[in-house]
Design a protein around this nucleic acid. Structure first.
Length: 129
RNA sequence: GCUACAAGCCAGGCUAUCGAUCCUGUUAGCUUAGGCAAACAGGGUAGGAAAGUCCGGACAGCAAAGAGCAAUGCACCGGUGAAUAGCCGGGUCCUGCCGCUACUUAGGCAUCGGCAGGAACAGAAAGUGCCACAGAAAAUAACUGCCUGUUCUCUUCUUCGGAAAAGGACCGGUGAGGUUGAAAACGCAGGGUAAGAGCCUACGGCUGGUAAUGGUAACGUUAUUGGCGGGUAAACCUUGCAUGCUGAAAUGCCACGUAUAGUACCCUCGAAGGGCUGCUCGCCCAAGCUCGCCAAAAGCGGGCAGGGUACAGGGUAGGCAGAUUGAUCCCGAUAAGCAAUUAUCGGGACAGAUAAAUGAUAGCCCACGACAGAAUCCGGCUUACCGGCUUGUAGCGUUU
C-alpha cells in the first residue's frame, strides 16, 4: 500500500498551459466561498489527478495572507483526496482541479477542511456519472 | 535600581504526527547510454525590513560618423566607494541656548567664544513674473508730509516804500517722518542743507575687485579700493557639469513545429524605403543575378531573387543556461586614516521555487508572539513594527 497523504510534483498542476485550459473549458462548481474548476477526461491510459489553488489578490492585498490561504487549501486537499484518487484510478479517468478561494475574510483551517470535504464528495459524484 | 537618548543584536521555543522543495549517499529499476525516475537515510530551506521601487550599479540585448537645439538630472569643498541625491570630514549661512566685552535708558545686548540643531548651500547686479492680510506704499514710483520760489485772499504794523503771520493755488526740490507687516529702500551718531538724502565723515554690517598670506579646496585672515538696487530660482529662467534606449516576461542555446509559405499593391538607377537621439541640419545605407533579341552599348521583354506596406492565417509558450558563492556578509587580529573606509591574515555563514517549496494540525512552556513572504543580483535611502537583550552617555535615587 502506497502512501496516501502525498502531494508531489506530479499531483500538482504545474504548467501554465493546463491552467489556462481549465479556465477556458473547465466546468464550475461553487460551494460557499470556494469556486472549483475541473476538467475530466475518461478512458486514459495513465489515470492521474492534479490540483491547483488560487487566491485573488483583490481580496487579500498582502502576500502573507495569500500564501496562508493557499497553504491551508493544499493541506486540506492532501489529507482528503484519497477517495477521489481511488475512484479515478478504478474508472481510468484523469482529472484536473483548480480551486479558488473567493471569500474576503481570512479563513481558519477547520472551515477550509470542511468545505473541501464537500467539494471532494461532489467531485466523486461527477466521476461516477 | 529607575528614566531618557543613541548604537548594535534577536525576531517565541520545544515535542509528536503528516507533508513540500533542493543537495548528498545507498538500494533496486528503465534506457534511444545523454539520462529518467522510485524507495530509504542524512542535511539545508524566508527578512530586518524580503516592502516602497526613491537613488546608484552589475549583467544582458538593441543602437552608435557628427553638430546644434530641445529634454531630463545634478548644484559649497575634499575624501570614501563599482557608483549615487549614500556615508565621513571640513567650510559658509541661519536658528536656539549659555558665557563674556564694548555700549547701556541697568531691562538688556551688537561683536566675539562655546554647545546643540537645521540648510535642494550656483546665480536675484541678464530678463520676465509673483509677494495673501494689514499698510500711504511690496519696488516704477505715487499719496501724505517737509522746503525754496511765484501769485491770490485776509489780518496786524508802518517812516506809506513796504515788512511780518496765516490760509489757498501753481512751478520746482526731497525721499528724512507717515500707527502696518515676516520684510519698508544698510544701522547708528555727527556734520551738512532752504528742506533733505551715504551727500560727507567716524564706528559697525553686507558685498564685488586687487594684493599679501594660511589651506589640496570650499574658504579664512590682513591691507587697499569700489558699491550697498527688499524677498522669491521647491516660479519661469540663466550658468556649469552629466546623460543613447530597453529591462530577467532581458538574453543565449537545445528540442518540437513550420514555411526559401499565402494574397493584394508598390519599388529595384539616383526610386520606394531605412538609419543616425525627440526635432532640425547634414550625412550614411541601399538598388542584385540571369536569359533572349542586338556586332556592342543603350533600350525592350521574360524569369529568378531582394526590399517595403497592408491583409488573412499558422506555430511555439517544453527543457537547459542566465540563477543564486558574490564589488558578498559577519567575527577577531594587525596596519593606514580624525573618520567613512581600505589592505593583509585567520575563522565562520549564505533559501533557490517556476503557478511558484520554506508548511499544516495537536499538545506543553513562557516574556503570550508586531510589521510582514524571496522571484536576476548587489550597495544605499525611505516607510511599517509587539517585545526582549547588550553597550555607552545624561539625570535621579539607595548603600558604603
Amino acid at each position: 500500500m502506497s502512501k496516501q497523504f502525498t502531494l508531489g510534483k506530479t499531483e500538482r498542476l504545474k504548467s501554465r498551459k493546463s491552467i489556462e485550459q481549465i479556465f477556458a473549458v473547465g466546468k464550475k462548481l461553487v460551494t460557499g466561498s470556494f469556486r472549483v474548476l475541473y476538467v475530466l477526461n475518461s478512458d486514459v491510459l495513465t489515470p492521474s489527478l492534479a490540483f491547483g489553488a488560487g487566491v485573488s489578490s483583490k481580496h487579500f492585498k498582502k502576500a502573507v495572507d495569500r500564501n496562508r490561504v493557499k497553504r491551508l487549501m493544499r493541506e486540506a486537499w492532501r489529507l482528503q483526496k484519497s477517495d477521489l484518487e481511488e475512484m479515478i484510478r478504478s474508472q481510468k479517468q484523469s482529472m484536473h482541479v483548480f480551486c479558488i478561494y473567493t471569500g474576503k475574510a481570512l479563513p481558519d483551517y477547520k472551515e477550509v477542511f470542511e468545505k473541501l470535504t464537500d467539494v471532494i464528495s461532489k467531485l466523486v459524484k461527477v466521476c461516477v456519472k
